[in-house]
Structure formats: structure tokens, C-alpha cells
Simulated scan of single mutants.
Amino acid sequence: MENTITISEIKRRGMAAITDHLRLGPTHVVKRNKRAAVILSEDEYQRLVAQHAPHLPGMTALEWLIAQPSTGSRSRAAIDADLQAERSW
């Protein structure tokens, strides 16, 4: 079942309600029968933030692109060899 908490429960029980729900993982906050927010533990939040490269004011698109973490598995040499093979047809 989905881990949700209502605004009224938060108002009634406060941080104790949030702590109880966070033991089960990320918690959806429901306001007026609609999801309004998600509460994460500090550890989970830091893990998510660490996955993204920082965006600094004044950063160009190229600088941002270069700052992104590599997710590919091919080496530069393999990519260069594939490009050379394509160019020599």
C-alpha cells in the first residue's frame, strides 16, 4: 500500500506522525484528497541531491553539460574506434 499522510494528521500529531510514516519510506502528503508533497528522510534527500550536478548562476549550457555525471559504459577509445569505422566507409 502507498505510504500517505494527510495534512489533518500532521496538524493533529505533528512531527510524531511524520516520523512514524518515514519509517516506511518516502511519504506522500495528501491535501484536499490530492497529493501535495513528498516527505523524504534526510539521507534519501542527500542521496538524490548528490546524483545531480550543481547548477551555478552564470553557467553556460556547455559547462552544465560537461558537469553532468557520466552514465555510459563505453570507453573513449571504443567510441573513437566506432566513429573512425563509420567515417571510413
Rank of each mutant, 00 (worst) to 15 (best):
S70D: 14
K34I: 04
L24W: 02
A61V: 02
K31Y: 14
E44M: 11
A67G: 04
D43A: 15
Q51L: 15
Q68V: 10
G25H: 07
T27R: 03
S73T: 14
G72T: 09
A50F: 01
G72C: 09
V49Q: 08
Q46T: 07
S70L: 12
H21P: 00
L62I: 07
L65W: 06
H55E: 08
E42G: 06
D43K: 15
W64P: 00
D20N: 09
P69H: 15
R35M: 11
T71V: 15
Q68Y: 06
A37K: 08
V38F: 02
R32I: 03
K31F: 13
H55Y: 07
A37V: 02
R47H: 06
I66H: 02
R35T: 10
H21L: 04
P26Y: 11
A67E: 06
I39C: 08
L48Q: 12
R32D: 14
D43S: 14
S73W: 05
S73R: 13
I66G: 00
A50N: 08
H52I: 11
M59P: 00
V29H: 03
V30N: 03
S70E: 13
L65S: 04
N33G: 06
L62N: 03
A37Q: 06
T27Q: 00
R35L: 08
I39A: 08
K31N: 12
L62K: 05
Y45Q: 09
V30T: 09
S41H: 05
H55N: 02
V29K: 04
A50E: 07
H55R: 10
S73C: 07
L40A: 07
S70G: 10
M59A: 05
I39G: 01
H28F: 13
L48K: 07
L24K: 12
A53S: 11
Q46Y: 10
L40Y: 15
R32T: 05
T27L: 04
